[in-house]
Simulated scan of single mutants.
Amino acid sequence: MADRPPILIVFGGLPGTGKTTVSRGLTRRLAATYLRIDAIEQTLRAGGQAIGPMGYTIANALAAENLELGRVVIADCVNPVQASREGWRKTALHRSARLVEIEVICSDVALHRQRVQSRTSDIDGLSLPTWDEIVSRQYEPWDRDHLLLDTANGSLDHLIEQAETYVRDEIG
């Protein structure tokens, strides 16, 4: 992907759908810069700071700096509301970057629940949300075209390949 404008790839989806696994795989394939909201927010919590929108604000600032360097940046976040999606869109626009949006779902409710209930945190001190917290969470529908990856169908390699193909098609 050399000699291209910077690219911001934003993953979103409920916790436990597999977005971190897929976004990390794509990060490796593209040798991209990886930003994970969970890591930023947990660092803020550990420092005694309030979270609110601050994790997304910091991540957008880090993305902007890396886009300015011409990097491919992958943001791994729940991205549950239009306001957070608009933040990413503005960051891409202000850095003349191509924006690619990918939503990760798990259409098999039993599988999604099993994943949520059996996973452990890979971030020190981070308490993962419960199934009840996830299903009662505010999550607004997306308002424009994006790739929808369903982790209930296909292997991890296939999902990463789908994401990579979509990115390449979107950036031309």
Rank of each mutant, 00 (worst) to 15 (best):
P53K: 13
D145L: 11
G172E: 12
L159R: 00
S127V: 15
L156G: 02
V81W: 02
V116L: 03
S84C: 10
P53F: 12
G125V: 07
P141N: 14
S136I: 04
Q82P: 07
L149W: 01
R115E: 01
T120Y: 08
V73F: 02
T17K: 09
Y166W: 10
R144I: 02
A2W: 11
A64D: 05
S96V: 05
A31G: 15
H146M: 11
S136Y: 04
C77E: 04
T130C: 01
E86C: 00
L147Q: 09
N153E: 15
Q82E: 15
Y56S: 07
A63P: 06
I9A: 07
P5T: 14
E101K: 11
G12Q: 06
P6L: 11
H94C: 14
A97F: 00
L8R: 04
L128F: 03
Q117D: 15
I102R: 02
L128A: 03
I134C: 02
A83C: 04
I51V: 15
Q82N: 07
I74G: 03
T57R: 15
Q42D: 08
P141Y: 06
A32P: 02
P15F: 00
L62G: 09
E161C: 12
G25S: 03
R85A: 07
Y56D: 10
T17Q: 03
A64G: 12
H146F: 07
D76V: 11
A2H: 13
A97H: 06
V72R: 06
L26N: 06
H94M: 15
G18H: 06
L147H: 09
I58T: 07
H112T: 05
Y34A: 06
R28K: 15
E103P: 04
I134S: 00
K19Y: 11
P129L: 02
A75V: 15
L148T: 10
D124R: 05
G48I: 08
V10K: 03
S121I: 05
M1G: 14
H146Y: 09
R119A: 09
Y166V: 01
D124W: 03
T91D: 05
R95S: 11
Y139M: 07
G12I: 03
R85S: 10
L69G: 06
L147D: 10
E161I: 00
T43N: 08
L93C: 01
I102S: 00
K19V: 10
A110R: 14
Q82S: 13
F11N: 05
L14W: 10
P6A: 13
Y34S: 08
P5L: 13
L126G: 01
R98S: 14
A31L: 14
L14G: 04
I134N: 01
V167R: 03
Y34T: 09
A152F: 01
V22L: 15
S127C: 09
A63V: 08
Q138F: 07
I171A: 03
Q82F: 09
S107R: 10
Q114K: 13
G25A: 09
D150G: 06
G172W: 01
D145A: 14
R115I: 10
R144V: 01
N79A: 11
G52P: 05
S118C: 09
A50I: 03
T21H: 13
R119P: 04
I74D: 07
R113H: 13
R98Q: 13
K90H: 13
L62D: 02
L111K: 12
G48M: 08
E101S: 12
D150I: 05
T33K: 12
L8F: 07
D169T: 11
V116F: 06
G52W: 04
S84K: 11
S118K: 12
D3K: 14
